[in-house]
Amino acid sequence: MHPVDSTTTAEHRVVQLEEALNEAAQINAELQSRDALKTQFLANISHDLRTPLTAIITHAEILRDGILGPLSEKQRDSVASIIGGGRQLLEAVGEILTYARGAANQLTVSPSDFHITAVVAQVAALNEPLMVKKGLSLSVDVTPGVPSLVADREQVMHVVSNLLGNAIAFTPSGGRVWVAVTSTSERGTTHVQVEVGDTGIGIAPEHHDLVFREFAQVDPSPSRRHHGTGLGLTIARRLVELNGGRIWVESQLGEGSRFYFTLPVGDPR
C-alpha cells in the first residue's frame, strides 16, 4: 500500500473511533439521566403514597380507640386489619424510598457509639407479637465482651429488622429463629458479627447471590407464597457496606438459613 493511502485510512479509522466514542458517551449520559429520573420518580411516588396512608392509619386508629364512639368487637377487628394492612404498606413504601436513595447515592452515614445488643433487643421486642402469632420461638445469644460499635444506629437497626423480618416470614409455624452476636477479627481489625438464623424453608446455594440482588425473589411468580418488595436484602447489603461491613448467607434448601453480617468496631467514615 502507498504510504499516503495508509495514512488516510488510519486517519479515517481514528475519526470513526472518535465518533463511536462520542456516541457511547451520549448513550451513557442518556442512561444516567434516565436512571436519575427513575430514582426521583420512586422518591416522589413514595412520598405521595405515604401521605394518604398516614391519613388512613390515623383515622382508623381514632375509630379503633373509640374516640368517635364505641365499636363492636367485629368492627374493632375489622379496623385493626385496616391499620395492620396500612402499616405493612407503609413499610413497603419506606423500603422503596430507602432503595431509591441508596441507588442515587443519597444515603449518608451518621455514626454514633452504641452496643449492638441494644439494637437486637429493640428489634426482637418489636417483632415479638408477630412471632407469637406465628408460633415461632426466638433466642438471642450474645458472647460476653462484644465491644460497642461506631456506626449508623438507625441503619444497623434497619438491617437487623430486615433480616429478622425475613427469618419470620420464611419459617413455618413451630420453627425457631435466633440471633447470635459475637466478635471476630478480619484483616487485623475487630468486627462485631451478627447471625440471624432460622429453621425455615432455606435457600438453594445457586440462589445465594440472587437474594441480595434488587427486585429479585427466588420465587417471582404471582402465586408465590411469600410476598414483599424484594428489596429487603438489597437494602441490608447496601447499608452494611455503607457502614464498612459485609453480609452473606449460608443455607441449603429445606435446612433453614443463616444470614451473617459484620461491622468494624471503629468509625466507618
Partner: peptide
C-alpha cells in the same frame, strides 16, 4: 399541606377536648 392528614388530626384533637 395535606388536607387528608390535617383532617384526621383535627378529628383526633377536637374529640379529645
Amino acid at each position: 399541606d395535606s388536607a387528608d392528614v390535617t383532617g384526621a388530626l383535627r378529628v383526633l384533637f377536637e374529640e379529645t377536648g
